[in-house]
């Protein structure tokens, strides 16, 4: 019990502050190594689980079971059909607005140094964007009816 307590209350490996300086200063890109490890584990996990599932499951193939579900009747036609053009419009508008959001991130990070200049620049930037937004709205690109 005392050992467990001692383990819990010992000084943590990285108690605050940056990692202890090594013999050579580590480049900041090393901070991404844990992310790469996490990515590998995250890929491995579903693959292993699916593999285990493959080993313990029983597979019986029937014609009806392998058909796409359509309320119990035989599927009519193919699912690879035409669909509403509105989805393309949404995708295009998304590109414009998302790029704009990304441009605002670095601006926000140095806003205290930009001060009044930053405010004017941002008003111009958002102003130009709002013109485009208004145009898209008036053209009916945002309507779904």
């Amino acid at each position: 019990m005392t050992v467990l307590l001692a383990l819990l209350l010992q000084t943590p490996p990285r108690a605050g502050g940056p990692p202890s300086p090594g013999p050579v200063a580590t480049p900041p890109i090393y901070g991404y190594i844990p992310i790469v490890i996490f990515f590998l584990i995250a890929v491995l996990l579903p693959v292993v689980l699916l593999g285990v599932s493959r080993l313990v499951q029983r597979q019986v193939f029937e014609r009806e079971k392998l058909m796409p579900y359509e309320c119990g009747v035989d599927p009519i036609g193919d699912a690879r059909d035409r669909f509403s053009v509105r989805f393309y419009i949404v995708a295009m508008l998304f590109l414009v607005f998302d790029v704009e959001t990304i441009f605002l991130f670095p601006w926000a990070v140095i806003y205290d140094r930009l001060a009044v200049f930053g405010l004017v620049e941002m008003l111009l930037f958002i102003g130009i964007l709002v013109v485009g937004y208004y145009y898209a709205w008036q053209k009916g690109a945002l309507e779904w009816a």
């Binding site: 689980l49 699916l50 285990v52 599932s53 493959r54 313990v56 499951q57 029983r58 597979q59 019986v60 079971k65 392998l66 058909m67 796409p68 193919d78």
Partner: peptide, 13 residues
């Protein structure tokens, strides 16, 4: 239950 259930891939997929 989910682990031992059958993993179905539709024939047209």
């Amino acid at each position: 239950k989910l682990l031992i259930k059958e993993d179905i891939v539709p024939i047209k997929a």
